[in-house]
Amino acid sequence: MINPRITRRTPVIMQGVTGRAGRSHFQLMRAYGTNIVAGVSPRAAGAQIDGVPLFGTCAQAVAATGAKVSILFVGADQLLAAIDEAVGAGIEMLVTPTEGMPVHDALQAKRLTLARGVTWIGASTPGMAVPGEAKLGFLPDSTLAPGQLGIMSKSGTLSYEAGYRLVQHGIGQSVWIGVGGDPVKGVRFADLVPFFGADAQTEAVLIIGEIGGTEEEEFAHALRAHAFAKPAFALIAGRSAPEGVSMGHAGALVHGVHGTYAAKKAALEAAGATVFGSLGEMTGGIVAALRR
């Protein structure tokens, strides 16, 4: 079973630590509490950043630190190779915020990680966090607070907005996972149902979905298959989008009857989930259900 519950002690390596974005998020993640024990940089091997050693390869970083988790700030054209390297080095969970990964590369990365039982979060994700412990990626600190709601989201910004509003009403998160908006990705909503079902800190889950694909329908199916006994909430963006045009996220493309808002809403409601029509409705509904 996938277990994304990292702590402030979990050792993490970072691939792509020397780039512009990598450098800045390295500092932000450490400031939040993430235990980054090594960086990987073929060009800067042997050097250090803020006291953290850099290695030339993933395998060396893993051998030196025993880390099983990697966060990758690597360009889209190099991402497949970097994932391959991480999997080969024995990494068991990897988070890839990179936007713009070619979908056929994602197919290969999916096969690689599935074959080795590796948990891949991404691509095109703002990352994940266990609030109060650690974060991998760039979920804004202002939206994070320890609490009882498990969040899974295809969209970064919409989840920030939702998380922020709920935190203002006293609802924090147990674990927050951005699955990302790409059509082919690592972890999907449905894959996380067993974890959230068993996780003691999670009292309810919220999925933030979008039109396109079938992930929301798969999630609905998984709720039933795993007899998920906690409240499940959903917010789905894009109900007024035209067919055949993707709005920002490559995955959010409706063609024909596939991926429509109506199909997703019906599947979720049939599985006992509550689908909210707006951010305001969502905040009110979740606060009423969870606040004591």
């Binding site: 969209s155 970064g156 919409l158 908006g181 917010l235 963006a237 007024s240 920002g248 959010a252």
Partner: peptide, 14 residues
Amino acid sequence: GAGLSMMLIDELRA
């Protein structure tokens, strides 16, 4: 933000 912008359009139209 793609998701938030889509949601905003949905809410405006509603």
